[in-house]
């Protein structure tokens, strides 16, 4: 039996179908949470955004027009905008201690890197990117969206998306130069 499309699930959600609500969450909630986590840098804020996204789905399901837009793209747009709004508000009341420290670098040559520590450094480097660059790399690299879809969500041209991505990866490469070598070394050791 074919899986119901997103449009079919949304229509069932609007009529109060519990199974459809659960199926739509199973399909998209983890991805929305991952997007928000990479944009905001902490799990609690990411859960709040993911919750807000789905509350909007519950509210607007009855007005969803099948075929007019991709439901997944709409979800990404809502989640991205909620994250950008939150980051703008955060900027006004920024606590300097809340900004993740950039990767410290220069660990000892014989140091075995903990995976968790490496992950934290990557996250810190991501959080230090300008917001638009971060949104572009989150949508393209982490969420796997095409350049046209990412451009649509960010309200820019595909050329602008490519430029945002190039700058983001360049900055990340500089920030994570040590980590890349360490990752390679740790892989060689474990291999």
């Amino acid at each position: 039996m074919n899986k119901p499309s997103d449009d079919e699930l949304v229509a069932a959600v609007a009529s109060g179908d519990e199974a459809a609500c659960r199926a739509l969450m199973d399909r998209h909630l983890t991805r929305m949470l991952a997007l928000a986590r990479r944009m905001l840098g902490n799990h609690a804020d990411a859960e709040e955004v993911a919750q807000e996204v789905f509350l909007r789905v519950w509210t607007h399901a009855g007005r969803w027009e099948p075929g007019k837009a991709q439901f997944g793209t709409w979800l990404h747009r809502v989640a991205t905008n909620l994250c950008l709004d939150r980051l703008r508000r955060r900027r006004g009341t920024e606590d300097i201690d809340a900004i993740p420290e950039p990767a410290s670098g220069e660990p000892g040559p014989d140091r075995q890197l903990e995976q968790r520590e490496l992950a934290a450094r990557v996250e810190a480097a991501l959080q230090n990117l300008p917001e638009r660059q971060r949104a572009a790399i989150v949508l393209s690299h982490y969420q796997g969206l095409g350049n046209i879809e990412a451009a649509d969500i960010l309200g820019v041209t595909v050329e602008a998306v490519e430029s945002l991505l190039s700058r983001a990866r360049r900055q990340l490469r500089v920030a994570l130069a040590t980590e890349k070598d360490e990752l390679l070394r740790s892989r060689e050791i474990s291999a």
Partner: peptide, 30 residues
């Protein structure tokens, strides 16, 4: 190689509490 490093950025599964909150707030058949 650089992609593999980027892929290490953490992302957790949704908590049971989040799922329960959303199911509690879902639309109901009238």
């Amino acid at each position: 190689r650089f992609d593999a490093l980027l892929d290490m950025a953490p992302a957790e599964e949704p908590s049971a509490a989040l799922t329960e909150r959303l199911m509690a707030a879902r639309p109901r058949a009238v």
